[in-house]
């Protein structure tokens, strides 16, 4: 089961409202994306914590419909 990049962006923005999200479809199968996420709310957080914020936003999708999501986070 695939997931659209719009849905990935929407989910991340619900969880991290001030995020700017750019999605790259790595394999064209709706299953392997790379997400570049810029958000001031990452400030002061470790990489692990930043990525956990993204995973929390994606909820149960991560590891089910979304098999592979490469994440790059930055504060600005």
């Amino acid at each position: 089961m695939a997931i659209s990049s719009q849905e990935v962006i929407a989910l991340i923005k619900i969880g991290i409202p001030d995020a700017t999200v750019t999605i790259t479809d790595m394999a064209g199968d709706g299953d392997h994306y790379r997400a570049d996420i810029v958000s001031p709310s990452f400030t002061g957080k470790s990489r692990v914590q930043q990525h956990q914020m993204v995973y929390d936003a994606l909820g149960s999708k991560m590891g089910s419909e979304l098999h592979a999501l490469s994440i790059k986070t930055s504060e600005s």
Binding site: R47, V48, H51, S70, I71, K72
Partner: peptide
């Protein structure tokens, strides 16, 4: 200590 997954280890 948990360091991270593939993305983080690659970045580091």
């Amino acid at each position: 200590e948990f360091i991270g997954g593939c993305d983080i280890v690659k970045e580091m």
